[in-house]
Amino acid sequence: MLAEWSFVGVFLVIALAFPPLGLVTAWLLRPKRPGPIKKSTYECGLETVGDTWVQFKVQYYIYALIFVIFDIEIAFLLPWAVAHMGLSAAQGILPLIEVVIFVGILVAGLMYAWRKGALEWI
């Protein structure tokens, strides 16, 4: 068990070190001749107008909210899925009914968001 997880730790260090090493190599090889026009924002040759860092529409965050709820649902469903075959052999249909109720509440929430138009991308 320790060997399994220590590999993930070592691999994390390797994976994090790989892109900086590549960029250092490129830094040694590449030419450096910056200019004001080269360093301007690239918007198809037109001068950029207005501020980019604006407040994004609020509709966008509703997606994020629904996502968070369903992501947590998945985190709850995974352990149930691992145990499901054993559970239904030992306790019959009762655990399944409990999960149906749990998912049913979330599906009701999804239907509500759907009817309210929260799933429309504007």
Partner: peptide
């Protein structure tokens, strides 16, 4: 790709801009 010039736009936020590809 290794020998191409690297351009950081003046408008960009330097630290965040360089953190993205990493």
């Amino acid at each position: 790709i290794l020998t191409k010039e690297d351009i950081t736009p003046t408008a960009a936020s330097r630290v965040i801009y360089n953190l993205g590809p990493l």
